[in-house]
């Protein structure tokens, strides 16, 4: 299991070297979106309309942060459960997005889309909101402010720690890890 440092936007060359279980420290700009924002973004894609940000090489973080304290760019910001985005993620990957950050299992369609479009599903430590929030240097709402914590934010991260869960070869860390430690 290797450790990598990647800066966004990322390419197929970046994602193809990663294997389930690897640790990655992310740098650069990433975008936040949860259920409500995803459904709006996918609708825009289907209608052929312009998106509030460039999907090519992007990483989407499934998060709804706490309100920032005065002087801070963002509050606590750990991942939310990813399966609620399963129906949207393949469309995002097909249209150029290269990575997702969340927690918990994805369905087969998402895993297949990671293989087909060189995408990676990263797991961040759920519930480590204070620690992860600290790695976010700036945050700006760029779409859907009415969604509150669910608005789309452009955030800048520094050495943001994630683990590769689903890689471009169809591996699944959750499945592999569990099989290894299961006592029958």
């Amino acid at each position: 299991m290797a450790t990598y440092s990647l800066t966004t936007p990322i390419t197929s060359e970046d994602t193809k070297q990663l294997v389930a279980g690897d640790t990655v420290l992310l740098n650069g700009t990433i975008f936040t979106a949860r259920d409500a924002a995803h459904s709006r973004l996918v609708k825009l894609i289907e209608e052929g309309k312009e998106l509030p940000f460039d999907l090519e090489g992007s990483i989407i973080y499934f998060v709804g942060p706490t309100p920032p304290k005065p002087g801070d760019p963002i509050g606590s910001a750990g991942p939310t459960t990813s399966y609620r985005m399963d129906s949207f993620s393949p469309t995002m990957l097909k249209n150029g997005s290269k990575g997702m950050i969340g927690k918990g299992n994805r369905n087969q369609e998402v895993k297949d889309a990671c293989v087909a479009y060189d995408g990676i599903y990263f797991g961040a430590t759920g519930g480590a909101g204070a620690l992860l929030g600290k790695q976010i240097r700036s945050a700006e709402v760029i779409a859907y402010p009415e969604l509150g914590p669910e608005a789309v934010r452009k955030i800048t991260v520094e050495d943001f720690p994630v683990t590769v869960v689903n890689d471009t070869k169809g591996n699944d860390l959750y499945q592999m890890g569990r099989e290894q430690y299961e006592v029958k």
Binding site: G21, K69, G127, G129, K134
Partner: peptide, 29 residues
């Protein structure tokens, strides 16, 4: 026993220390 899980729990303890010292919410939920 798993090194990956050990690291996750280490992060959770570090998270708890940061949250307490800096008065940041432990989790965004």
């Amino acid at each position: 026993k798993s090194p990956v899980s050990k690291e996750v729990i280490r992060q959770l303890l570090e998270n708890a220390n940061i949250a307490k010292d800096e008065k940041r919410p432990l989790c965004q939920d």
